[in-house]
Amino acid sequence: MQISLKIIVLLFGISFLLVFVSLVRRKNIKPFYSTLWLLVSLLMISLVVFEKFYKWVATLLGITDASFLVIVSLISFLLIYVLHLSIRISQMSDRMQELISHIGILDHQIRKLKEDESD
């Protein structure tokens, strides 16, 4: 890896880690998701720190370009993660619809009961 690229990746990884830690601290992100993002930022930093290791794994798999291995694994990780989020969002919007309907019906029922009382 070029030295300038190393610096960029390292800075990116570290700032990602910092942003992520502050998000967890402020409880803006659930522990489950925080673990996933921790992995991403650590992976980025490790790219620079353990460059030799990745090269070794790459040659072991018969891949000459180590960066290719890294890019492919990052993209697959993100794809799986985005898929996971889509599933979660679908579940959540279905549940939200159910809740909106039921709160509406209960709210209407309570209003009716109160009206009956005051009559």
Partner: peptide, 23 residues
Amino acid sequence: VDYLKHPVNTGGSAGVIKTAFAY
């Protein structure tokens, strides 16, 4: 008139139909 109010907007008119079925 008798009315039922959603606590938040469902982001489209189809949400109203679902509530109507439940009601």
